[in-house]
């Protein structure tokens, strides 16, 4: 009997503690899982955010790098964490929208197993060509490629990478045929291949090639963004020239495990919106090539993620990429 009473007492205590935690949240350090290695684009964003976020929440933010398996290891760790607001995930276009299509056997679903909190950044990507390709705009590039079917190469960070899928989407819309040349070592390696002229073109983040654009070593034909980029006022964005679906680059957002109390999700959303408006954060992110984009509400971000999932799953099916 004693033990039953003790158990009951503990259960009651835990329940009370649970309610209390939603009100005073957070009362202990918050762990932010980054599903990529230190130094990657996601990690940089996390490192820029975390000090300001910590100040806002009044708690330390522990950045926990769980890299591996295209980010799936970190995503799985976050999905299995207690849904109490003390574990959040910094997901990106790859882990939250592309991987579900690539890894149908992976048993964690970003849409089903997470609560979307807010988008934080968008890193615009660009269709970049080596200067040896004699074209000045997207139209000329398509004509040039159509005259040489299967002869031009594009660099990617692997068959399931964002840059590959963007190019496949563009190729289908434009009716051209280019050959994929995958690079190990991420998008940086593919950018080096483009710079050295080993490949003719690639979809790369603007940040990785901006200095070479200024030096005339790479030409940017168009950017995947919802508007023109201030630093490249003469370069069109894709929706402007008829490619409606290509309006976002490589985005990142914050998630909490499914079941995290609404009050905590709302608080996290409010805090993140505030953090992302901090002038220091905005400036640092801009300098590193990312634009601050926050969602109006968790529901809006959930909607955006659903759209992105559908879009990429469709491309993956059409191209026939299977990563098993």
């Amino acid at each position: 009997m004693k033990s039953v009473k003790a158990v009951a007492a503990i259960v009651v205590l835990l329940l009370v503690a649970g309610v209390a935690s939603a009100q005073n949240y957070p009362t202990k350090p918050v762990r932010m899982i980054v599903p990529f290695a230190p130094g990657g684009a996601s990690d940089v964003v996390a490192r820029i955010l975390s000090p300001v976020l910590g100040k806002e929440l009044g708690q330390t933010i522990l950045v926990d790098n769980r890299s591996g398996a295209s980010g799936n290891i970190g995503v799985a760790a976050a999905a299995q964490a207690p849904a109490d607001g003390y574990t959040i995930l910094l997901g990106n276009i790859g882990t939250m929208a592309i991987n579900p299509g690539l890894f149908p056997k992976f048993n964690v679903s970003p849409v089903r197993d997470f609560v979307a909190v807010t988008q934080v950044v968008d890193v615009p990507t660009a269709l970049a060509v080596h200067p040896s390709v004699p074209v000045k705009n997207v139209k000329e590039f398509i004509e040039y490629a159509k005259a040489r079917p299967g002869k031009l190469n594009f660099g990617t960070a692997g068959p399931g990478s964002n840059g590959r899928l963007e190019m496949e989407m563009f190729m289908r819309a434009a009716g051209i045929d280019l050959v994929q040349i995958p690079y190990k070592g991420g998008a940086g390696a593919a950018a080096i291949g483009l710079l050295g002229g080993e490949v003719h073109c690639a979809f790369v983040t603007l940040a990785s090639i901006m200095t070479h654009v200024n030096a005339g070593k790479v030409k940017v034909l168009a950017v995947a963004a919802p508007h023109r980029i201030p630093t490249l006022p003469d370069v069109p964005y894709f929706p402007e020239i008829g490619y409606k679906g290509m309006k976002s680059g490589s985005w990142q957002g914050v998630y909490a495990p499914k079941g995290t109390p609404d009050a905590i999700v709302k608080k996290l959303h409010a805090v993140f919106v505030k953090v992302m408006a901090d002038p220091g954060v905005v400036k640092r992110l801009q300098d590193s090539g990312a634009e601050v984009v926050t969602s109006k509400s968790p529901a809006e971000f959930a909607e955006f993620m659903k759209e992105e999932n559908d879009k990429w799953t469709k491309v993956i099916k059409e191209v026939g990429v299977v990563m098993e």
Binding site: G68, A69, A76, V321, M323
Partner: peptide, 19 residues
């Protein structure tokens, strides 16, 4: 993971071995 195809080699379905 094979760089060209994205297929996994000698990973025995162990997720940690995919990289």
């Amino acid at each position: 993971t094979d760089v060209d195809s994205g297929w996994r080699r000698f990973s025995f379905d162990i997720i940690e071995l995919t990289d």
